[in-house]
Amino acid sequence: MVSIFYFLSFLAVISAFMVVIAKNPIHSVLYLIMTFFAIAGHYVLMNAQFLAVVNIIVYAGAIMVLFLFVIMLLNLNTDAEQNKSILIRLTGIVAGGILMITLIGAFKQVSIVKDTTFYASGQAYDIGLVKNLGNTLFKEFLVPFELSSILFLAAMVGAVMLGKKDIK
């Protein structure tokens, strides 16, 4: 169990790192998908099986494919990207590193007060199931659910307007 955790974590971090440093955007996409899988694995570890599936379907399946489409469409599948200067890259890495150290330093001793009653009742292991999630989504989160349709509609209209070849 623990070793799976470490493996998945390692995989996620490494592939995430590869996303960032891969020369070819296609490679980046693929590494990103790998990261998503690793994250989905974590979801499974945490009993959020439904979310794990959704993560793979939505992210790896839809979003990343969209990325791939665009990259193909624009014919960007080469490593033609000019690198930023070493100095800038180094600064970027240092900045990210400092941020990382800050966050990790701050979170080192964080503990979360666990609600033991949940564990006792056994409900704790069910929350990730479709049934329970569905309940939460359509009861408690009904309004945001409805409103996200507007978000989608807006995004759709926008994407069409911007992406269409000619509007007249």
Binding site: A12, V13, A16, F17, V19, V20, P25, S28, T35, F67, V70, I71, L76, E81, Q82, N83, K84, I88, R89, T91, G92, I93, A95, G96, G97, L99, M100, L103, I104, F107
Partner: peptide, 19 residues
């Protein structure tokens, strides 16, 4: 946090908008 910061690093060091 690690993943988040790697993302930030990516934002900072890459020139390709898609990346």
């Amino acid at each position: 946090s690690l993943l988040f910061c790697i993302g930030i690093i990516g934002v900072l060091i890459r020139r390709n908008i898609i990346v």
